[in-house]
């Protein structure tokens, strides 16, 4: 199945080549975990980001247990900085 994933702000640089402005479709197996999905995005270790799944904050401890369905919303946010 295909999952649409959105990356905002400075995280956009980690979108695969050929992606839209801030999102891409990723091919994964049915019932994939968020952890497996995130592993397909080459965000360097230590780079902070927040995952919003269906508009809910997900903590790193939940990544392995959370299964993603094809019409789920997955959004990755870089830290908010003042501006």
């Amino acid at each position: 199945m295909k999952i649409s994933i959105t990356l905002f702000g400075g995280l956009r640089q980690y979108l695969p080549a050929g992606s839209g402005y801030n999102n891409c479709d990723i091919e994964v197996d049915e019932g994939v975990s968020l952890q497996t999905l995130l592993a397909k995005i080459p965000i360097p270790d230590g780079k902070p980001f927040l995952v919003m799944h269906n508009d809910t904050r997900i903590t790193p401890e939940q990544y392995a247990e959370l299964n993603i369905a094809s019409d789920d919303q997955v959004v990755l946010l870089p830290p908010i900085k003042g501006g």
């Binding site: 959105t6 905002f8 702000g9 927040l50 919003m52 959004v75 908010i80 900085k81 501006g83």
Partner: peptide, 11 residues
């Protein structure tokens, strides 16, 4: 700083 608008909106 405009880049922040997508982030706070998502948040």
């Amino acid at each position: 700083t405009l880049a922040m608008i997508d982030v706070t909106n998502g948040f």
